[in-house]
């Protein structure tokens, strides 16, 4: 842990992208579960996620980054699913 003489005055963070080191997923009480067979790859979940917790690889939804997902449920709410079947459902943590 840094001592006060080692700090940058003004609390300016000089390292770009350092928030990646501060994992915030532990706040979550509900977790989104991805049901791949119902996914139409519309990427609404990626678009609506207020964090960057939807992992997209080569243009395709591949799952969630649970280090940063706070379980807000916006993705599940926006998910159109396939033929009325949601591709994202929220489940209580610890279940």
């Amino acid at each position: 842990m840094k001592k006060w003489k080692e700090l940058v005055p003004g609390a300016v963070v000089l390292e770009a992208g350092s928030s990646e080191k501060f994992k915030t997923g532990s706040w979550r009480s509900f977790r989104p579960r991805w049901i791949e067979e119902n996914c139409i790859q519309c990427l609404f979940c990626w678009l609506y996620c207020p964090d960057m917790a939807v992992k997209v690889v080569e243009g395709k939804m591949t799952g969630f980054d649970y280090d940063f997902c706070k379980g807000c449920g916006v993705c599940a709410r926006e998910c159109p699913g396939k033929k009325g079947q949601k591709a994202i459902v929220m489940e209580p943590e610890g279940k």
Binding site: K2, W4, K5, L7, G10, A11, V12, V13, G17, S18
Partner: peptide, 23 residues
């Protein structure tokens, strides 16, 4: 040189920053 102003600093370093301010 991208950087951030106004970070959240809780029990771990807040007091050190206040000490620095007095200095």
């Amino acid at each position: 040189h991208p950087k951030s102003y106004g970070p959240l600093i809780l029990t771990d370093l807040y007091m050190e920053f206040k000490r620095l301010q007095h200095e």
